[in-house]
């Protein structure tokens, strides 16, 4: 079997080496580029992101990648956003002001509240390993990105902002962080995103990346 081709979007932010190495460890043939033409022609795309929503959108804009990413997503080929890369998939984000996102998933990204409903303070950012659970009323994942993931398995998060999908069916996994329900895996069709870092989540994360490479 030939290696699954995957294109890692390089727009000057984040730790691409780790994502790239993890995809390679999962059998991916990784190409790292910021070339819009290459992106439009990709078989499979990973969009990383780190730092602030606005800064990342600006960087995508500078590299002329906003429209190519939208066009790629319309093609129905698989796209995986990681961390802020997942947040960018949504309509808008509010981190140091309101910013327009890629609009590939309906919903917005907002700050995790620093206190819970009972008034207890919540440490921000959410850093560390937290468990994935199927959203309300479901007991397991039957296919797609999470086909080989078991409810309760932990993955590595580091974030202060979280996404709020408007369509309930776009929420694929949730994570409780000190009483706050985090959208940890989202997706609509082939547009997928995870709030945590699969490339830093040990064997559980690699399992997910392997699934992505088989989509």
């Amino acid at each position: 079997m030939s290696a699954a081709k995957v294109l890692l979007v390089d727009y000057g932010v984040g730790n691409l080496l780790s994502v790239s190495r993890a995809l390679q460890a999962c059998g991916g043939a990784v190409e790292q580029t910021g070339d819009p033409q290459r992106i439009l022609a990709a078989e499979r795309l990973v969009l990383p992101g780190v730092g602030a929503f606005g800064g990342c959108m600006e960087a995508l804009g500078r590299h002329g990648l906003v429209e190519p990413l939208r066009a790629y997503a319309r093609s129905g080929r698989p796209l995986l956003g990681i961390c802020v890369g997942m947040q960018l998939l949504f309509d808008e984000g509010e981190e140091f002001g309101r910013h327009v996102g890629l609009g590939l998933l309906q919903g917005a990204v907002g700050a995790i509240a620093p206190v819970d409903d009972a008034g207890h303070r919540r440490k921000i950012p959410h850093v560390g390993w937290s468990a994935l659970q199927p959203p309300d009323g479901r007991v397991a994942w039957s296919g797609g990105l999470l086909a080989d993931t078991r409810p309760g398995q932990s993955v590595y998060f580091v974030h202060s902002f979280a996404a709020h999908p408007s369509r309930p069916e776009d929420l694929l996994a949730v994570t409780d962080y000190a009483g706050c329900r985090i959208a940890s895996v989202v997706g609509h069709g082939a547009v997928l995103g995870c709030q945590f870092h699969p490339e830093k989540s040990g064997p559980v994360g690699l399992t997910m990346l392997r699934r992505f490479l088989s989509l």
């Binding site: 440490k123 560390g128 390993w129 998060f157 962080y177 000190a178 009483g179």
Partner: peptide, 9 residues
Amino acid sequence: IDCQMANIR
């Protein structure tokens, strides 16, 4: 304990 955050690392 304030409340359960993430797992202790």
